[in-house]
Computed example of a mutant assay.
Amino acid sequence: MALFDNVKKFAKLRGMNLQEVAIKSGLSKNTLYKWKDYKPSDPYILAVAKTLGVTYEELTGTAKETTPTKIDLGAALDDSDDVIMTFDGKPIPDEDKELIKRLLRGK
């Protein structure tokens, strides 16, 4: 769905027309109609998103790409003297840590 269509959809859900959204966002009243043909710069999109109470991603129909954090559990377990391991907020006993190490190593 295009940016303009999303702005229209969210404006309608909030009980506003496009001119009201534009004015509340600090834009001229007919600015949003121009968004049919081009993508405005991010500060304008963010201002409209704030007015409509949505995120930039919701308004533009894009998703943020996130890179999962990689953790080397083996290295963390080998350096367990410096690592405090907890489960449900309670420290894991040393004998359980040894069991976890064996399971992670497949032994």
Rank of each mutant, 00 (worst) to 15 (best):
Met1Gln: 10
Asp5Gln: 08
Asn6Cys: 12
Lys8Ser: 10
Lys8Ala: 13
Lys9Trp: 01
Ala11Tyr: 05
Ala11Cys: 04
Ala11Ser: 15
Arg14Trp: 00
Gly15Tyr: 15
Leu18His: 06
Glu20Trp: 14
Glu20Thr: 14
Glu20Cys: 06
Val21Cys: 13
Ala22Thr: 14
Ile23His: 06
Gly26Cys: 12
Ser28Pro: 11
Asn30Tyr: 02
Leu32Glu: 07
Tyr33Ser: 10
Lys34Gly: 14
Trp35Lys: 09
Tyr38His: 12
Lys39Glu: 09
Pro40Ile: 06
Tyr44Asp: 03
Tyr44Ser: 13
Ile45Leu: 04
Leu46Val: 11
Leu46Ile: 04
Ala47Glu: 14
Lys50Met: 02
Thr51Leu: 08
Leu52Glu: 02
Gly53Ile: 12
Val54Met: 01
Val54Asp: 01
Val54Gly: 00
Thr55Trp: 11
Tyr56Phe: 13
Gly61Thr: 04
Gly61His: 01
Gly61Pro: 03
Ala63Met: 08
Thr66Ile: 14
Thr67Leu: 12
Thr67Lys: 10
Pro68Ala: 14
Ile71Gln: 03
Asp72Thr: 01
Leu73Met: 14
Leu73His: 05
Leu73Lys: 10
Leu73Cys: 08
Ala75Arg: 07
Leu77Cys: 01
Asp78Pro: 00
Val83Asp: 01
Ile84Thr: 13
Met85Val: 14
Thr86Cys: 02
Phe87Asp: 07
Asp88Thr: 10
Gly89Leu: 06
Ile92Met: 02
Asp94Tyr: 08
Glu98Cys: 01
Leu99Ile: 04
Leu103Met: 06
Leu104Gln: 06
Leu104Thr: 03
Arg105Leu: 09
Gly106Val: 04
